[in-house]
């Protein structure tokens, strides 16, 4: 009986793993910045949110994504609501692409992801520079977008394994 309960709780944690990972990544800024590679950075939450909302993963609650955005703003030091807006916009974009797609194509998703993150990063940059007078380096944003786009395909293959494991 105890063994069964433990197995059920482990399965529960496993099903909630993406959202736990999202919170860890926003609190920890999981992006290997400490490697001190010049300009190297990528936005892991973008990849995570895009993939799991596109797959309409059942435990990936939009409200929790919104809260994760607030946490990210607090950790990074951005005005509250900026990351929440970005994450919610990703959710909208994936909901839209789900509605218009009949036969999903990973390559199309990948380039659609590039379009979406470019749009959201531009929006972020504009809000921060125009309304909050932040001085930001545009090159860093462009390179961040490029690396996020490049790493998407790697993380997607890992997430697919996760989903496969969950189905099994």
């Amino acid at each position: 009986m105890t063994r069964l309960t433990r197995k059920t709780s482990l399965l529960k944690i496993y099903t909630w793993f993406p959202i736990i990972l999202l919170f860890i990544s926003v609190l920890n800024e999981f992006d290997f910045n400490y490697l001190n590679l010049k300009y190297f950075s990528f936005n892991f939450p973008f990849i995570l949110i895009f993939f799991f909302t596109l797959k309409e993963f059942k435990n990936f609650d939009y409200f929790l994504v919104f809260i994760a955005g607030l946490f990210n703003d607090t950790v990074v030091g951005l005005p509250l609501g900026i990351s929440s807006l970005s994450y919610t916009l990703i959710c909208i974009a994936t909901a839209y692409i789900r509605n218009i797609t009949i036969r999903p194509n990973p390559l199309k998703d990948w380039f659609y992801f590039l379009f979406i993150i470019s749009l959201i990063n531009s929006l972020n940059y504009s809000i921060l520079t125009l309304f909050f007078d932040f001085n930001l380096d545009l090159t860093s944003y462009l390179i961040n977008t490029f690396f996020t786009f490049s790493f998407y395909i790697i993380f997607v293959s890992i997430f697919k394994y996760y989903l496969k494991g969950l189905n099994d």
Partner: peptide
């Protein structure tokens, strides 16, 4: 999502 976008803008 519309509610969440509105809340985000409100918070900003």
């Amino acid at each position: 999502l519309l509610t969440l976008v509105s809340i985000s803008i409100f918070v900003i």
